[in-house]
Amino acid sequence: MIGIIDYGTGNIKSVGNALARLGAEYIVTSQASIIEGCDRVILPGVGSAGMAMENLKRSRLDKIIPALTQPVLGICLGMQLLCAHSEEDDTECLGIFKNRVQKFPEIGKKIPHIGWNTIGSLKGSLYTNVKQESFVYFVHSYFAETNQMTIATSEYGIRFSASLNEKNFFGCQFHPEKSGDIGEKILHNFLSNNII
């Protein structure tokens, strides 16, 4: 069973739809006991960092999530919440990834970064059988800097972390649930037995 954490942010449904297409069973929940019992946990997220962290704290999920030992995947804002700090609303985040999240600088690129972009420097089990320079779908205005936890990078004016990994925690800045067959492959890898 895959737990999709419901903490009051939008468009959780598309993650569920993508899992259903892969034949996986899922439950959308904010209950700690259910989340802890799932084989996989997904932290989705559309919205702003400040409000999202508030919501996590209110349901004490800020304590539950970092203690999880099964594979956890943060998507988009979900990945940023797993980082140390976000410039968005000057928010202290969960601190699993040591990266800081910053706003895209004004360098003549349209913000938000919306659309298809390539990912490279792919590393590890999340990207098994995914080709370097594959296209995935992004929607974001803030980015995580690159560091040793970076397992995929992308470029939009500057180079940033498209994906992060630390122990059982994974993050995708892009939306695998909207990234065509490549996205499905990445989700499939996350569900597979040898992900960690």
Binding site: A20, R21, Y137, E177, K178, S179, D181, G183
Partner: peptide
């Protein structure tokens, strides 16, 4: 449609 396609 949302259930069946994997692009935006």
């Amino acid at each position: 449609i949302a259930k069946n396609i994997n692009i935006p």
